[in-house]
Design a protein around this nucleic acid. Structure first.
Length: 674
DNA sequence: GTTAGGG
DNA sequence: CCCTAAC
């Protein structure tokens, strides 16, 4: 309740109309801004997402009201799902029954309820969206400082509306085409072109944790949230959950709207993307994260469980995400739904993705981070099986490529906004491709069947992930609006980056459905960050004005030392794994016996001179693993078995050289004992 | 650029 | 394999 009030308050302050009551047509018409130069794309996407969400919510709400059922926003989807469901949702989740309540308060209450666990504010997705929107607006108008805030706000809403209109169209198409498939999602539109039906829809963008990143979250579709819940339940109840989701979603919609309002302020902060000092980043991340979560929380009771699990898991995985984090900066998250033939529902997607991304602290450490990045969007999914051979999945979120932006301190906020927008648009404009991650690995072979990949209706889809990649793989870094004063660098990372992948994968694969999502950024927060988060949240809730967000936002654009370590991250693609063959092991062992450890360069030269793919570091690492392998029981060994004889030699050489470590490093080829 | 270690 | 700190 509290939250809600605040929200309302916020609205009043802004004079934002309560959500989307107005007929779609109405919404649509009004605000369409002309999209100039196509820069709109990004925004459009966001807007469309938002709109879609709204629509869904509305439709769902209405449907619910009228029918009393919880139907998903999209008729088709809903029905199917419903059919699937066998079990009453209600049983599991109390929420269902009173959909209406949920709708109005849903998010809020959930937030409150879950507070303990989540602590974050629900606004997340919506917020993000708003932010984005506003940014765009600003840029378009080249806003004038004075009114900017206000205009932004107002515009944001309109924008949505407009988009929503589009969205609808798109969705319908999609729905038709994909009957049985997941319908929801917002489609991404570029340059106001209608999206193509078949493709992916961006359902909910999630924000990432990285502070720096731009995150756009889309109001999560309630669905998404719902999904999350579902996952918690597990296989057995999947269907039911699903249905609920729908409900939730619908209900949620309003909340979302509200969220938008609320978010406005926060958005500003977000807007400032500059690759802030770590602290800043964290903060942002947290915000985002929190938002994200909050949204998710809609699930309520059910969710709780999940979250807990998720959090823990995430915790552990945190490091894993490390790479990702880097990428995440300046990333927009979007949620998309894929429609295909398969039907999978993934709930986590969003979560995991975000979480993963967010985790972040590491990123900071690594470097300023901000690398460019990445493009990848990761969508996490949860799945449950629907019908036999169909995999039903819902992608809750996609991460947009990371952007690294660097601007001089003297740059104006407006310029910064524009810069960010340009960067985002550039990425969107170039097109995005979708990458599929299985067990964290990017599957490049499009010809493989899901079954072959181990993605079946039976199996959980936890290990399945999606990511958006820039079509043009390595986008060279480009300067954003450039002009002297404005020097901004943006780097778009190519997709398929391992970086992203791995983290995801880990999360996905390892974590049980429940867990994944959860952890997120939360895990890693540092005191500072938390502090920040708190502030933020508070701000979000309470502050009504768009007021600039103090602290962080203002921080130093200057700081931007974007990079340092970024370099690698930009392109980095993890090398493909190339297990050592027995013969290679033998060559390695022989070389080490002669040269000893500590002379990897020599070992490389002697035994792997021609093996370009084997670096001395690789050899060193291999030796390390060989030693380990030799020490463990055969049962514990994995991979291609290494002849015991070689392992014995490994141990012998290892012990020998350990003793002679200090001395004869150099020569001494003679290994007596061996 | 190499090493040595942790991840 | 990756990433870093130390050399």
């Amino acid at each position: 309740m509290v939250l809600k009030r605040r929200l309302d308050f916020g609205f009043n302050g802004f004079q934002v109309p309560t959500i989307p009551r107005a007929p779609r047509s109405a919404r649509r018409g009004p605000h369409r801004k002309s999209v100039e130069d196509g820069q709109f794309c990004a925004f459009e996407l966001l807007a469309s997402l938002a709109g879609k969400l709204l629509q869904e919510s509305e439709s769902s709400a209405s449907s619910n009201a009228s029918e009393g059922n919880l139907q998903p926003a999209f008729g088709i989807d809903v029905k199917q799902e419903r059919q699937d469901e066998h079990k009453p949702l209600k049983e599991e989740c109390p929420d269902q029954g009173s959909s209406e309540e949920s709708v109005s308060l849903g998010l809020t209450s959930q937030n409150v309820d879950q507070k303990g666990i989540l602590k974050e504010i629900p606004c997340a997705d919506s917020d993000t969206v708003l932010e984005r929107t506003s940014v765009i607006t600003t840029s378009d108008s080249s806003a004038k400082a004075g009114r900017r805030a206000k205009s932004v706000i107002s515009s944001s809403r309109p924008t949505f509306q407009n988009y929503s209109g589009k969205v609808e169209g798109g969705s319908l198409g999609i729905v038709k085409s994909c009957y049985g498939n997941i319908a929801n999602g917002i489609e991404v539109q570029e340059d106001s072109k209608p999206l193509e039906t078949g493709a992916l829809k961006i359902a909910n963008p999630c924000s990432s944790k990285d502070p720096t990143e731009l995150h756009a979250k889309y109001p999560a579709m309630l669905n998404g949230d719902s999904n999350v819940k579902l996952s918690l339940f597990g296989d057995p109840v999947p269907n039911a959950s699903f249905s609920r989701h729908r409900n939730d979603i619908e209900l949620g919609s309003r909340d979302d709207d509200e969220n938008f309002t609320r978010c406005i302020k926060p958005s500003n902060r977000v807007k400032v993307f500059r690759p802030p000092p770590r602290v800043g980043d964290r903060r942002i991340r947290k915000l985002l994260t929190s938002k994200y979560w909050k949204a998710a929380p809609k699930l309520r009771e059910c969710e709780h469980y999940r979250y807990d699990g998720g959090v823990k898991t995430i915790y552990r995985k945190r490091k894993t995400f490390y790479n990702r984090e880097r990428s995440q900066r300046d990333t927009l998250y979007k949620r998309r739904k894929l429609v295909d033939r398969s039907s999978v529902v993934t709930s986590d997607g969003g979560f995991s993705g975000e979480s993963v991304s967010n985790s972040p602290d590491n990123g900071d450490k690594t470097g300023p981070a901000a690398n460019g990045v990445s493009a990848s969007v990761i969508g996490h999914l949860t799945s449950f099986r629907s019908e036999e051979s169909h995999v039903k999945l819902r992608i809750k979120s996609f991460r947009v490529p990371e952007l690294v932006i660097e601007v001089p301190e003297t740059e104006t906020v407006g310029s910064l906004k524009r810069t960010v927008m340009d960067a985002v648009n550039a990425i969107l404009r170039d097109g995005l491709s979708v990458g599929v991650l299985v067990q964290g690995k990017n599957i490049r072979d499009d010809n493989r069947t899901l079954m072959q990949m181990g993605i079946s209706s039976k199996d959980s889809l936890d290990s399945l992930g999606f990511m958006l990649e820039p079509s043009h793989v390595q986008a060279p870094p480009f300067l954003c609006s450039g002009d002297p004063p404005f020097s901004c660098k943006m780097v778009a990372r190519s997709p398929g980056l391992p970086v992203l992948d791995s983290p995801m994968s880990d999360v996905l694969s390892d974590v049980p459905p429940t867990t994944n999502s959860g952890s997120l950024a939360e895990t890693k927060h540092e005191p500072v960050s938390s502090h920040i988060d708190i502030l933020t949240n508070k701000t979000m809730l309470e502050s009504q004005a768009l007021v600039a967000i103090p602290e962080m936002s203002m921080m130093p654009l200057a700081i931007v030392p974007v990079s340092q370590k970024t370099k690698r991250s930009e392109l980095a693609q993890r090398r493909t794994r190339r297990p050592f063959s027995v013969s290679e092991v033998e060559a390695l062992v022989t070389a080490v016996e002669e040269l000893g450890t500590g002379r990897w360069r020599d070992v490389k030269l002697r035994a792997f001179e021609k093996a370009d793919h084997r670096t001395y570091v690789d050899l060193k690492d291999k030796w390390k693993t060989l030693v380990h392998t030799a020490k463990i029981s055969p049962q514990q060994r994995r991979g291609e078995p290494v002849p015991q004889e070689l392992l014995d030699r490994v141990l012998a050489a290892h012990s020998y050289w350990c003793q002679h470590q200090a001395k004869q490093h150099s020569k001494h080829p003679a290994l007596p004992a061996f």
